[in-house]
């Protein structure tokens, strides 16, 4: 679906942001990109819809070189939900906000109506259809930006720091949305520091540090590698820490508290 082959990226001021990136993301994968600020995560995902083009090497989306397409064209397949909803909401009503992209992509009128209704309902925003996006709360704005993207049904959905400023209830809802994406075969790329949010999703983990990919594999394996995590300044999820400290012999760290509870209860009662 998305392929990076030997990609370097250097900013205009000479700062090297990506070095020798080789990465293939397949259809239907859930990928979490982690690493400290400045590691190159945002630069990486901005190559996926052509906002940035490689200084060296090639990025392809569905086999097409991103240098041959505009961001607007590539976005039909790859939708990015940016961190700050205020950087994109501009319409007078939620309805117009959602159909903006659909019109840009030239969807027929009838499809636009269907998709609009579906997206508003799915994200529980239907009561605001005719309201201004400005009246929404932070969490609702976030959902609206997701609705805007889902409405045009891209194959790949990129979430840039989706949990920043979100409370537990909103995070849970977000996790549900990601699971839904997965169930319908979408590719999801999550850029986040929030390992507690990422962990239960059991994604493929891409660890970045100083512009390089320093780790790439199933989260359940990489999250156990303390040395690797520390070198990239990534925190270890609490459940993985507990698993390691108990020297649990079962192969995988606990995915959720229920699993941990079962293991510990057995252990104590034994």
């Amino acid at each position: 679906m998305i392929n990076f082959s030997n990609v370097d990226f250097t900013h205009q001021n000479g700062v090297v942001a990506l070095r020798a990136i080789n990465l293939t993301i397949d259809r239907g994968e859930i990928v979490a990109v982690v690493g400290e600020n400045g590691a190159g995560k945002t630069t990486l995902v901005r190559h996926m819809n052509g906002l940035l083009k490689p200084s060296r090497g090639i990025v392809t989306v569905d086999g097409v070189d991103t240098r041959r397409r505009s961001t607007a064209q590539l976005s039909r397949k790859v939708g990015i939900a940016f961190q700050n909803p205020d950087h994109q909401l501009f319409s007078d009503t939620l309805e117009n906000e959602i159909i903006f992209a659909l019109k840009n992509f030239g969807f027929p009128e009838e499809t636009i109506r269907q998709r609009l209704d579906w997206a508003l309902n799915f994200f529980g925003l239907e009561q605001y259809t005719k309201d201004s996006p400005l009246i929404l709360s932070g969490g609702e704005k976030k959902r609206l930006t997701l609705a805007c993207i889902l409405a045009w049904d891209p194959d790949v959905i990129i979430l840039d720091e989706p949990t920043v400023g979100q409370d537990a209830i909103q995070k849970e809802r977000l996790a549900e949305v990601v699971k839904m994406f997965k169930s319908v075969g979408k590719t999801v790329v999550i850029v986040s520091h929030d390992v507690e949010f990422i962990w239960p999703l059991q994604p493929r983990l891409v660890i970045m540090s100083a512009g390089r990919v320093v780790g790439d594999g199933p989260a359940r394996d990489l999250m156990r590698d303390r040395g690797l995590l520390e070198s990239a300044r990534v925190t270890q999820p609490q459940l993985v820490q507990i698993h390691a400290e108990l020297k649990a012999s079962n192969s995988h760290p606990f995915v959720d508290t229920l699993e941990a509870r079962k293991y510990i209860t057995d252990m104590v009662k034994r």
């Binding site: 537990a168 209830i169 507990i242 509870r261 510990i264």
Partner: peptide
């Protein structure tokens, strides 16, 4: 949980274990 607070896993596990009698 009802107040939107992200409870650390270790603490959540404590409450879960209590339900199991641990």
């Amino acid at each position: 949980g009802a107040y939107g607070i992200v409870v650390p896993s270790a603490t959540r596990l404590y409450s879960e274990l209590a339900k199991e009698g641990v």
